[in-house]
Design a protein around this nucleic acid. Structure first.
Lengths: 209, 209, 209, 209
DNA sequence: CATGAATGAGTTTTCATTCAT
DNA sequence: TATGAATGAAAACTCATTCAT
């Protein structure tokens, strides 16, 4: 939407996923709609965002929304699906870049903080906080994708624990970290003094001493 | 709702607050309505819970709700106000019981985990996740109460930091802890193997080494 | 709606069915809504009649319709259910009044002509011509009731055939008669010269020589 | 649509009418659209059939429909106009083939049963049951054509009555026959045991003893 | 002629809220 | 206080129709 400095490897990742049909091209009308929806759903909440709000945000008529998506819930679903797909891919490539377990955990934390507070922040917040707005079938669909994502975390934490870097229960630790990181969407200000890197290092000390 | 084993000091606290007019007596129709509302708002979400749902849950007609509360949002507001008032009081009395900073932090954690996953769990979840459903004025009202609550945390953490028990930034740490503990509402199962005490000790290791 | 001369035995029948909960009291708001719906659905067609039309016809707001019926289709369903129940009851009592097969057939014809062109004319037309507007489940429900009604016809025609009064195939004859009689809704004018009794006798000659 | 055995005189009739511009050539895209529309309008009803349904059925995009017809209602109108024109022509040539009034009536019945249950069955059903979907002007237009068609019936029945073959009122008889024959679209199964010829002879006994 | 994205007026339905009883 | 019928504004969604390409 804005001309921001997006790292070239991110642009490459998006292009690859668009080419695979796994995410919607953000330059198409449908992609722009998804971006605006993420923002509105995050700020106002899914239920309080009307289809008219969405349409107004992208400059079309409300009826035209349904040319792109069968229903309002389909928008939410697409949003959630694509944000997990993207961040899972991103995390996978980041994990590949290091062998050191501690570095790997730090990378996961960086990645998730970036996901929550960076480019995909709106969609990630929606994923975390609008879960109940999906019907059971759609929840199941997303759950499959989340499980893949979570397994990356659990495997990495287990590796660190084997090496004695972690004493806590891995499962509980992951849940605590998830809550801690997700919640940052409500208070972290990217324009403030603190960098995400500082945040990541603080978070690492929660997990690893 | 059910006859559960509630610690006598809790009952006493409720009675005191009821006497002060700071919380609604849970044995009155209005109190029962608040309890049911907390449950429904948490499970279905505030927006997706209709006034009819609420009325059906307490066995009255939807119109009768408005003899107790001026509007649906008033119910949400009362819920949030009372759950903070109650848990702030509770935390204050717990803090008074110890001088050891580490013990104090542990007590805060215990208290908040208990608040989120125990008797006031429904209302606490609603407080955390339905924030955007309040209008600006009501948000301001609740914010005043939350600030009092949060100050108890910040003061205690600052004390522990002074004594070298904490290296992290106190503000960031508190936010991380808040997210971690709040999020447990989505995964902690009181009927499972893990006790809240175990959870509390795990959480303590996030903060203090 | 209007003060018409309704035969006392009809009023009695309605009262009995109302008392059993099998038909809606036409004097209640819900009953008046059904009557207006029958008229509108017949004249404009079910699909072309909007809920707003219905509401305007009974002098309420469109939203209030849903206080009485869960959906627009529920109105159609109730209409169809009640008109069959009523006319089946009526036919049963008429059949009981004669032993002569020819007289019985004539009575069935009178009854159906009366149903189509008399008091229940609107609802009967809707029953016959708006069938496809019901979903499969609702069609099944009505089919059960229609089968009971049709069996009265088939049994009576079979009796007349046994006595040599009919040569045609009973099944085909019934279908032809049904079409002939139903279609009269499109052309018979109760205010014109021809009486329903004349119509009935003409119809009898189609069946019995 | 399929390669069915169509009598050569029917093909000839169609060709003549196409040459006159009175009916659309069924081999053209427009003609195929009309055929599909007839089917869909009959099965789902005119109102419940969307322009998208029509387009999908003929394998084009919904916008392209409007290159062939100015509006959806124009399709309905063309359908009705052409099916009457065709069946009127057919009836006229059939009437010419006999001098015997009884034979003539039988031929009319055969012709109408064939029209309702044979090749033009879909369009005929639509003509009979979707009447209210035309606006007043279009109704008037079709009415002119129907009157020509009906006059063939009335003249023939009047002739038979003069010869003492019919006792009933000719007008009422025609209406009854029309209803009886039209209704057969709802129950007659061309793949079942009964032939249309059997049906026609049964129908003849309704009219003539 | 064909496409397909967009329109915009219209539809059914929802639901917090009111108020006479 | 309680009821429950009614309100009315707003919601999601539909769909015939248009039009630039």
């Amino acid at each position: 939407m804005n001309v921001v400095d997006v790292a070239p490897e991110i642009l490459k990742l998006v292009d690859d996923l668009v080419a695979d049909g796994r995410v919607t091209d953000p330059r198409t009308p449908k992609g722009r709609l998804l971006a605006k929806a993420a923002k509105l759903f995050r700020v106002k909440g899914y239920e309080r965002t009307t289809v008219r709000d969405l349409a107004a945000a992208v400059g079309i008529q409300s009826g035209s929304i349904f040319h792109h998506f069968k229903s309002k819930e389909e928008i939410l679903l697409a949003l959630m699906r694509e944000v997990i797909v993207f961040n899972t891919s991103r995390m996978q490539s980041m994990l590949a870049s290091s062998d050191n377990p501690k570095e790997k955990v730090l990378n996961l934390i960086r990645c998730e903080l970036e996901a929550i507070n960076g480019l995909t922040g709106n969609a990630m917040s929606v994923l975390v906080y609008e879960w109940r707005s999906l019907n059971k079938d759609n929840q199941k669909q997303i759950l499959v994708l989340r499980d893949i994502y979570e397994q990356l975390w659990l495997d990495t934490l287990a590796e660190a624990k084997e090496q004695g870097m972690i004493v806590a229960d891995v499962f509980v630790l992951r849940r605590y970290l998830m809550g801690a990181i997700s919640w940052s969407t409500t208070w972290y200000d990217p324009k403030g003094d603190m960098t995400l890197e500082t945040m990541a290092r603080e978070a690492l000390t929660l997990a690893i001493k």
